[in-house]
């Protein structure tokens, strides 16, 4: 049996193939994304007699509709998904090379891997607390996009260690400096407090805003330090989402 016949046998004849391009077969198989789009799986014979199962880059294109792998953390998660499922990647093309006899389990595994990759946006929002800073970036862009927030600003050039996460310099009478602080991140909290006090000492005109992942996770000393150093705090990302824009508009007026 050739590899298509082997595969069809494995799927109890519930599969088909269509020649998408010369030598590249599109697998028609009942594996669907949540919106009814079929999972893109292509088959092609390679030189050593094995079959390459691939997506020709369409899974990452799909992911990019609402999620970009644009940070080290996201890249690490993406690579881990591929590695644990023994799937390789070449310039966006996800693939696995298998012997024809192993096509059936390989395609089931490949379909699962594609589902994990194309749903990475769920990991961002609901599962991985370590992505707080990425989530914060999304929120700042979403809620404060009209102010054209600038990232990683150094207000005092000779003090490179004092970095502002986001600065609102446009459409504001007074610049607004925004800092994110992850839960229990004492070093970041104290650096933020020092930064704001140094900016005040340098008589810079600004208003400072801190967005906490979880203010309640901080100990009493840290809560006092940050409260005494900054102008406005949001106790969680949800608080910022709910009222951040209006509060910042008042601060910046």
């Amino acid at each position: 049996m050739n590899y298509v016949e082997l595969l069809s046998d494995g799927f109890n004849n519930h599969v088909d193939v269509r020649e998408k391009r010369p030598g590249v077969m599109k697998l028609i198989v009942p594996l669907f994304h949540e919106d009814g789009d079929m999972v893109d799986i292509f088959l092609e014979e390679i030189a050593d007699g094995r079959v390459r199962v691939s997506d020709r880059g369409l899974s990452l294109m799909r992911l990019s509709y609402d999620f970009d792998i644009d940070t080290e953390n996201k890249e690490r998660i993406f690579r881990r998904i591929l590695n644990e499922n023994r799937v390789q990647e070449d310039r966006g093309n996800l693939f696995v090379d298998v012997a024809p006899a192993h096509l059936y389990p390989a395609i089931l595994n490949f379909g699962q891997t594609v589902a994990k990759v194309t749903n990475m946006a769920l990991y961002r929002r609901e599962i991985i607390a370590n992505l707080f800073y990425e989530m914060l970036q999304d929120k700042v862009v979403d809620r404060l996009g009209e102010f054209r927030p600038k990232e990683d600003i150094i207000p005092i050039p000779q003090r490179e260690e004092l970095v502002v996460d986001y600065a609102l310099l446009e459409k504001t009478t007074t610049p607004v400096y925004i800092f994110g602080i992850k839960e229990r991140d004492t070093p970041k909290l104290r650096l933020t407090a020092v930064s704001c006090l140094e900016f005040q000492k340098a008589k810079l005109p600004f208003r400072s805003v801190v967005i906490h992942q979880d203010f309640e996770s901080l100990n009493k000393t840290d809560r006092q330090i940050i409260t005494n150093a900054v102008d406005k705090q949001f106790t969680s990302l949800d608080e910022f989402t709910a009222s951040g824009k209006e509060a910042i508009e008042r601060l910046a007026a």
Partner: peptide, 17 residues
């Protein structure tokens, strides 16, 4: 409230159900 809601997508030709 910070949600991303895809309202409409115009798609090309690919297998779909």
């Amino acid at each position: 409230d910070g949600k991303r809601m895809t309202m409409i997508r115009y798609n090309g030709q690919h297998d779909q159900s």
